[in-house]
Design a protein around this nucleic acid. Structure first.
Length: 203
DNA sequence: AGCACGATTAACT
DNA sequence: GTTAATCGTGCTC
């Protein structure tokens, strides 16, 4: 499958956040090993007026990448422990990005398990800090161009999920952000069809 | 220089 | 359900 081109990211951030669901995030290690997962959860962060967006503080050393061209990674450090991966969207000069919050592991799963301490498969990449740890994405990828030919981190085109499997809701972890920003349904989830399970119990 | 807090996670009751 | 860990960032003094 081809890689997503820069034009994919040079669009309205909500559109990009939805469209990324089902796409394949790929990390190529130095030895050529591919680690990959299908994107199952994203969030949109849109401009200086969005009080949940890091760009609310304006242009700083940290947020500068969001003011640059689309298709680059914005990787930041949080809670003294974790790295979070975003893709910059829209146009140069307008700070916005999509946070990748969860993946369904599809390639290199054995290594992902090792990197995540042997946790169950459904916990390998089901959080923004977990997936960066699993895919070995950290500070070195901040400002990296996901659309460059030689990129070791990029997103491949995959079939779009059925609309019925996509839902939107409030963004996670921003409880102290004032309305209307806190409640905006800018978190997007794809619930892939799971194995059929019988109903749990009685009437 | 000092301080409060965060787009989280894992461990614990 | 609750909470400690842990440090860069942005803001105040």
């Amino acid at each position: 499958m081809p890689r997503l081109p820069r034009a994919f990211f040079a669009r309205d951030t909500l559109t990009v956040a939805r469209a990324l669901l089902g796409q394949r995030l790929v990390r190529v290690l130095a030895d050529g090993t591919r680690l990959a997962g299908l994107i199952t959860e994203t969030e949109a962060y849109v401009g200086e007026t969005d009080l949940a967006c890091h760009a609310r503080a304006g242009r700083t050393a940290r947020t500068a990448v969001m003011y640059g061209p689309p298709g680059r990674a914005y990787v930041y450090f949080i809670y003294g422990s974790h790295w979070c991966l975003n893709v910059v969207t829209e146009r140069p000069g307008f700070p916005a990005a999509v946070l990748i919050r969860a993946l369904q592991p599809v390639e290199g799963v054995e290594l992902l398990r090792r990197r995540r301490g042997g946790r169950p498969d459904h916990q390998l990449t089901n959080g923004p800090g977990k997936l960066t740890h699993a895919l070995a994405v950290a500070e070195a990828f901040n400002t990296a161009d996901l659309c460059a030919r030689a990129a070791h981190l990029f997103i491949e085109r995959n079939p779009d999920p059925p609309a019925a499997e996509i839902s939107a809701g409030p963004r996670v972890g921003i409880d102290r952000v004032p309305e209307p920003w806190r409640g905006r349904p800018w978190n997007f989830r794809w619930r892939p069809p799971g194995p059929q399970r019988p109903p749990a119990g009685g009437v």
